[in-house]
């Protein structure tokens, strides 16, 4: 656990209060209360269709909050459009279509930095973790392998200098070795940059490896909340997720 200041104890990185949301009239999230503490990693688990991605999309301003509020470090952000939320140092990595496959690797990264100098520094930095990035800046992102695309996504999230990072199912379809690499990078960078991380996962083992706490969503409500280090956490979660 990174050390936390008194200030951070008082003001959460992200706070949902009584949040309801959904698509049109279909309410997917119901009166949800959730706190992401400063500097922590919280994993959202749950079966498909239980509202995990919906929650991230609502926080990010893609879906309107039908009730309740979302606060980012104390400031209300619900009601703002996605670009205004992104500009407040929130990075969001959606589950599908998270990259521009027809833009090259460099352009995909260029979109989140201010100028060419910042891009060069950032590329050099993430190149330390993922050497293919500086080597293949002019290659179209869509032609990267599945694992490389996920690494590029993580790199893009990191170089945008986020205070809060929202990541939706980054391990989907990945080999265990790649998953391990992503966990390592996230750990190191979180210690360095101090961002708070909210991840949506189906892969329970990855979730528990990377998260300080977890929350299980069922039918748009939190069914279980606990620390990843708790004995029996994994069994309990799988119990929630099983057939």
């Amino acid at each position: 656990m990174p050390s936390v200041t008194l200030m951070a104890e008082v003001i959460p990185a992200l706070e949902c209060r009584g949040l309801s949301s959904g698509y049109g009239e279909a309410v997917v999230i119901r009166h949800l209360d959730l706190v992401l503490r400063q500097g922590e990693t919280l994993a959202l688990l749950g079966k498909n269709g239980m509202g995990k991605s919906t929650l991230l999309k609502t926080v990010m301003g893609y879906l309107p909050a039908l009730a309740g509020t979302v606060r980012l470090e104390g400031r209300t952000i619900s009601g703002l459009p996605p670009q205004r939320i992104a500009r407040q140092a929130v990075s969001y990595t959606p589950q599908d279509q998270a990259l521009f496959p027809d833009l090259n690797v460099g352009d995909n990264l260029r979109l989140v930095v201010d100028d060419e100098r910042a891009l060069r520094t950032a590329v050099a930095h993430v190149g330390g973790y993922f050497p293919f990035i500086p080597d293949r800046l002019t290659q179209k992102a869509g032609t990267l392998s599945g694992g490389e695309q996920k690494m590029l996504l993580l790199a893009r999230a990191l170089i945008s200098a986020p205070r809060v990072m929202l990541v939706d199912e980054i391990t989907e379809g990945l080999q265990p070795s790649v998953v391990t690499r992503l966990v390592e990078v996230l750990r190191v960078e979180q210690r360095r940059l101090g961002f708070s991380l909210l991840i949506v996962e189906q892969n329970v083992r990855f979730a528990l490896a990377v998260a300080d706490r977890y929350a299980v969503l069922k039918q748009g409500e939190i069914a279980d909340l606990g620390a990843s280090a708790d004995a029996g956490a994994e069994t309990r979660i799988i119990d929630h997720l099983r057939l």
Binding site: P81, P82, Q83, L111
Partner: peptide
């Protein structure tokens, strides 16, 4: 290419 994604990356 993808307006939703662009907005999510902070593009107005």
């Amino acid at each position: 290419m993808n307006e939703a994604l662009a907005r999510g990356l902070g593009i107005d």
